[in-house]
Amino acid sequence: MSEDNQGILWEVFLQPKPGRPFKHVGSLHAYDKKMAMTSARDLYTRRGEGKGIWLVKSQDIVSSHPEDGEAFFDPSNDKVYRHPTFYSIPDGVKHI
């Protein structure tokens, strides 16, 4: 390990209650998983903000590139038939 001794950067995700999706809430420094978990609890759940914690090393996160954002997400724009409003249903038909 180099003189850089503040530990690894971790990203913290919290689940506000069971059944809800996990959301990114911030990051922290820690040297190992156990310490990261304890710090995440102390730093991000002091007021019952979460009932579940996920931790991911920042370096392991794969993300899209903002610069090619538009082209990358382009395929979603021209497929209107993916939306329910695309379809016409005869008047009076219910529960569909």
């Binding site: 850089d4 503040q6 950067l9 911030g26 990051s27 922290l28 420094h29 102390d42 730093l43 002091r46």
Partner: peptide
Amino acid sequence: IQDEAGHGLYLYCAAETLGVSRE
């Protein structure tokens, strides 16, 4: 005081996203 320590840490992390290290 514990909250203030937390505030410092959130902010150090925010600064780090700009390419400076904690050190």
